[in-house]
C-alpha cells in the first residue's frame, strides 16, 4: 500500500509541477478601447448598424453605444446616411434596403476614434423555381414512410456561394409558420452541411458549384386528402457572413497551453465587428 501511495503521490506531484500558474500583469498589454461596429443585413429589411465601444480587458465590461457618430452606407454615388435610433440604440434608415448583387462601403465616423470602414458585396438572389413537395419518398430508419421536399437550387457559377437553409411548416390551428427540423436526405450533402449552435444549417456549394442541384429534405408524411403548406427560406450569404457564423461556432475565448485562442472574424478597419449581408429567397409550397 505504501508503494502505491508513493506511486500516486509521484504522479500527482509531476502533474502539479507541470501545471503551475502565476498571475501575469494585466498592465503589460496594450489595452485599447476600440469602436465596435456590427451589421448582419439582408435584402428584405432595413439594415441596422450597431456602434458601441469595446471595454478594456481590466475594465468593467460596459459597452456604451455611440450615439453621436455619423454612419454611412455607400453604393457607387448613392449614399445612405443612417440615423441613430434612441429606442433600439442602432443606426438605420427606414427607406433604405441592401440590394442583391451590389457592393457597399460602410463608414462610421465617431468623435475621438479613427474612421471605421468596411465593405460588403451582396450576393445574388437564388432561383428556387421548381421546388416541390413529395408525399412519400421512401421509409426512414424506423421503417415508417416519409415525405420530402426537393429544393431546386440553381447555383450561380464563377463565384463561391454559401447558403443558410431554414424550413417551415404551416400550423393550421395557430395559423402561423413553425420552424421545422431540417434533415438532408443525401448523405454527401448532410456530411457537408454545418449545423451551428444557433440552429443555422449552412452549406457551401463545393459539391455543386455552378449547376442546378436538387437538394432533398425530409418532410412530414401523410397529407393524403389534405393540403400541406411548407416554406423554404434560403439565404445566400456573403463569404464574410458565412465565416463569421463559423468563427462564432469555433470561438474559444482562451487558447490555454497548447492552442491559439480562436478569434471571431472581424472585417472592420480601425475597429472590431462585422459588416456582412445576405440575400433571402423564400419559396412557399402550397
Amino acid at each position: 500500500m505504501k508503494k502505491r501511495r508513493l506511486f500516486f503521490s509521484t504522479i500527482i506531484f509531476l502533474g502539479l509541477v507541470t501545471s503551475c500558474t502565476k498571475k501575469l500583469p494585466l498592465g503589460n498589454i496594450n489595452s485599447q478601447i476600440r469602436l465596435t461596429v456590427n451589421m448582419l443585413g439582408d435584402n428584405l429589411q432595413s439594415p441596422n448598424v450597431y456602434v458601441t465601444l469595446s471595454s478594456p480587458i481590466n475594465g468593467t465590461d460596459s459597452f456604451p453605444p455611440v450615439p453621436n457618430a455619423k454612419a454611412y452606407i455607400i453604393s457607387g454615388t448613392d449614399t445612405a446616411k443612417l440615423a441613430y435610433d434612441i429606442f433600439f440604440k442602432h443606426y438605420s434608415l427606414g427607406t433604405f434596403k441592401l440590394q442583391p448583387s451590389t457592393d457597399y462601403d460602410l463608414i462610421v465616423d465617431a468623435p475621438g476614434y479613427p474612421l471605421a470602414t468596411s465593405t460588403l458585396s451582396m450576393p445574388q438572389i437564388i432561383d428556387l423555381t421548381g421546388t416541390v413537395f413529395k408525399d412519400s419518398i421512401g421509409i426512414d430508419n424506423q421503417g415508417f414512410p416519409v415525405g420530402g421536399v426537393d429544393i431546386v437550387l440553381k447555383d450561380p457559377g464563377v463565384v463561391r456561394n454559401f447558403y443558410r437553409f431554414t424550413f417551415f411548416t404551416w400550423n393550421t390551428s395557430l395559423s402561423e409558420w413553425e420552424e421545422a427540423s431540417l434533415d438532408f436526405v443525401d448523405a454527401d450533402i448532410a456530411n457537408a452541411a454545418q449545423r451551428n449552435q444557433n440552429g443555422n444549417v449552412l452549406l457551401k456549394d463545393d459539391l455543386f458549384n455552378g449547376s442546378t442541384q436538387i437538394i432533398r429534405l425530409y418532410a412530414p408524411f401523410g397529407f393524403a386528402g389534405q393540403n400541406p403548406k411548407f416554406k423554404i427560406l434560403v439565404d445566400n450569404l456573403e463569404s464574410n457572413y458565412y465565416y463569421y457564423l463559423q468563427s462564432i461556432e469555433n470561438y474559444e475565448p482562451s487558447g490555454g497551453i497548447f492552442q491559439e485562442p480562436a478569434q471571431i472574424l472581424t472585417n472592420i478597419n480601425n475597429g472590431v465587428g462585422i459588416f456582412a449581408g445576405s440575400t433571402q429567397t423564400e419559396f412557399i409550397i402550397n
Binding site: 501575469l24 503589460n28 498589454i29 496594450n30 489595452s31 485599447q32 478601447i33 476600440r34 465596435t36 456590427n38 451589421m39 448582419l40 450597431y50 458601441t52 465601444l53 469595446s54 471595454s55 478594456p56 480587458i57 475594465g59 465590461d61 459597452f63 444557433n198 463569421y244 462564432i248 470561438y251 475565448p253 482562451s254 487558447g255 491559439e260 485562442p261 478569434q263 471571431i264 472581424t266 472590431v272 465587428g273 462585422i274
Partner: peptide
C-alpha cells in the same frame, strides 16, 4: 503569447475577446 486586449459585443450581443494581434503579449 496571444492574450486579449479588450472585450466587445458580437453581432448577437455576446461578450467576446478582442485579441487585437496574435502573440501580442510577451
Amino acid at each position: 503569447v496571444s492574450l486579449p486586449s479588450s472585450v466587445y459585443l458580437d453581432a448577437f450581443g455576446n461578450k467576446v475577446f478582442d485579441y487585437a494581434e496574435r502573440n501580442n503579449y510577451r
